[in-house]
């Protein structure tokens, strides 16, 4: 054991050298930028636009956090990660915050030593097939070739789904969504499986989105959320309550349009506490009193981020569904700002 530790030290010392477990908030403030892990490119969630500026739903969360901590939504260094590299990047300290449609699971939270700070998208795993294949149910996929991103929960769900239905498949492991899209369109696999939101986003980028259908089966629960390293509770609090602030803002009707007006003081004490005109919530987190206001102004509240990046009026066209506010019959809910 001693010997193994020694050998191991030699190999990973370089990686581990950058790791710091405590004081991420101070590190970020001192550095002046937030290192945010995102996907290598999934339109609507995180992808660079024509000018190379990252945009998307997950990117919006990163920008809100940067605005809350540093006062500048553009002070973000985006680090593209694959399904396989994301956890190492976070654990080693290369990134401060991972917003990469990552599923909150027991083992990731407990065994991999991460801290999920909330859920920003309630998702489930689906299948996309070419319409010409004539398949109407995932259970008809016996013997099919399936493109699957490695190092994801979808890979495990896929194995479970086919095993429990007693049908076989041939996995084609891929590294990034772009690779999956290329293999799927080339016909190297019959079906592409990942989170339904990811499938919708991928299909939106196709030349003829209408030639491809999503099968009705949703085979898993995929609560996607941002996460930080385990053990740095101050930083986890900042991240958690920034996300909550975006949700609370939608609930309280605070939008990027009316926030300036509301910030001058309202009759609603919860809005006042959220926007920092009443109480000391910002100071408790170690931030400015208007931290939440800056976070909301970065890209709007949760609903605005959703509509702008992946909502029904975008090419991706996702309905709010489970991701509507709890007051509208969805699951999105935040503890009170008090």
């Amino acid at each position: 054991m001693k010997n193994s530790v020694l050998l191991g030290a030699l190999t990973i010392a370089g990686l581990a050298a950058g790791a710091a477990a405590a004081g991420t908030l101070d590190d970020v403030k001192a550095r002046g930028t937030l290192n945010c892990g995102v996907t290598t490119g999934l339109i609507g969630f995180a992808a660079p636009d024509a000018n190379g500026v990252w945009e998307g739903f997950d990117v919006g969360v990163c920008r809100a956090l940067a605005a809350a901590v540093l006062g500048d939504p553009m002070a973000v260094e985006f680090v593209p990660t694959t399904g396989q590299t994301r956890f190492t990047a976070l654990a080693s300290g290369e990134i401060d915050f991972l917003a990469r449609n990552t599923t909150w699971t027991f083992s990731r939270d407990v065994d991999l030593k991460f801290e999920f700070v909330g859920i920003n998208y309630y998702d489930g795993q689906g299948f996309m097939v070419p319409r010409a294949l004539g398949v109407s149910s995932a259970k008809d996929l016996d013997g099919a070739t399936v493109c699957i991103q490695t190092g994801t929960t979808t890979e495990l769900n896929l194995a479970d789904f086919f095993r429990s239905n007693n049908i076989s498949y041939e996995p084609v492991p891929i590294e990034t969504n772009a690779e999956g899209q290329q293999q799927y369109l080339a016909g190297a696999c019959d079906t592409y499986t990942t989170d339904a939101s990811g499938l919708a986003a991928t299909r939106a980028a196709f030349e003829n989105p209408g030639d491809h259908v999503l099968l009705p089966e949703i085979i898993s629960k995929e609560p996607l959320g941002p996460l930080v390293r385990h053990g740095d509770n101050e930083w986890a609090d900042v991240a958690r309550w920034t996300l909550n602030a975006l949700i609370a803002a939608e609930e309280l009707g605070v939008t990027s349009a009316n926030i300036a007006e509301l910030a001058s003081g309202t009759d609603n004490p919860e809005i006042n506490r959220l926007l920092g005109t009443e109480g000391e919530l910002g100071a408790m987190l170690g931030l400015e009193s208007d931290w939440a206001m800056k976070a909301i102004m970065a890209g709007g509240n949760y609903g605005e981020l959703f509509e702008k990046n992946i909502g029904e009026n975008t090419p991706i066209g996702l309905a709010r569904g489970l991701n509507a506010l709890w007051t509208d019959g969805g699951l999105v809910y935040t503890p009170p700002f008090r």
């Binding site: 530790v5 020694l6 191991g8 030290a9 030699l10 990973i12 010392a13 581990a16 050298a17 790791a19 710091a20 477990a21 405590a22 654990a91 030593k113 390293r229 385990h230 053990g231």
Partner: peptide
Amino acid sequence: WLVNNTIQNLAALG
């Protein structure tokens, strides 16, 4: 230094 660094960082990550 390498060994110590690794042990410390493993401990820090729990």
